[in-house]
Write a protein that binds this DNA or RNA. Structure first.
Lengths: 122, 122
DNA sequence: CTCCGGCATCGACAGGGGTCAATATATATC
DNA sequence: GATATATATTGACCCCTGTCGATGCCGGAG
């Protein structure tokens, strides 16, 4: 809250965050493009999956790395990975028998900039 | 396996973003606490609503301000606002006949830090 | 007190989502 | 080819969600 401490001079947007959200009302089209990204992440298992892929050595992980961390069936994990993939958040890379997943920087950046304090260059 | 094949100096986590996600695998409990926040935002209408509240003068807006922007019924908008409210993203403030909504800084910060490059002050 | 207007709640409907067991596909090994 | 392993797909289940019309609640005006 007391980030810069200038409470007296009126915070214009009530928060120094989320420039794309607080600068001006989000348009319908843009909202409809971004919502699916959030929807894909709006599940505990998928949040963990993305985090596991991100934090895994090399920034990638195969399903066999991810499966043991959950008490869920293999098809269920496969389903969640598919959701993340179709949302554009994960890339698939089949190497031999294994399938490696890696985050897509563009999609991650879309999320980051959504909640970023400032667009910097703007 | 190209794990140790860091050809260049290289980003250790493949991205300089989302420290809470890329530093270490997200725990189940934490994932289950954050997912509802994302779930509340994972809808185009609610994304727009939050953005409209954030960008509205004074950082707050009453339902009467928000309604005309959508071609949805008043109960539907009321429902979406309730979802955002129950997720902890919006505060309600009834003044006279009107109800004003305002973002909850804590919840917004939770989202910002999720995708922030560094936890910094945490 | 009565009436009107802003907003919430209710009940119902159609569609979507998470999960599983069963099965399919593909790759490597023998 | 036959077999074993790693993922993906299918089909079914139940619960959750976005939407609406109808109604209820509450504060202000006459």
């Amino acid at each position: 809250m007391s980030i810069s401490g200038d409470d007296s001079s009126v915070t214009p947007t009530a928060l120094a965050c989320c420039a794309p959200l607080s600068r001006e009302p989000l348009g319908r089209e843009r909202a409809e493009r971004i919502a699916p990204l959030l929807k894909a992440l709006a599940d505990p298992v998928r949040l963990q999956l993305l985090s596991m892929v991100l934090s895994h050595p090399g920034g990638e992980a195969c399903v066999c790395d991810l499966l043991p961390a959950f008490e869920l069936s293999q098809p269920t994990i496969s389903h969640h990975l598919k959701v993340l993939h179709e949302a554009g958040l994960l890339e698939r890379d089949k190497r031999g028998v294994w399938v490696y997943y890696r985050t897509r920087p563009e999609a991650m950046e879309a999320l980051v900039t959504l909640f970023a304090p400032e667009t910097a260059t703007a």
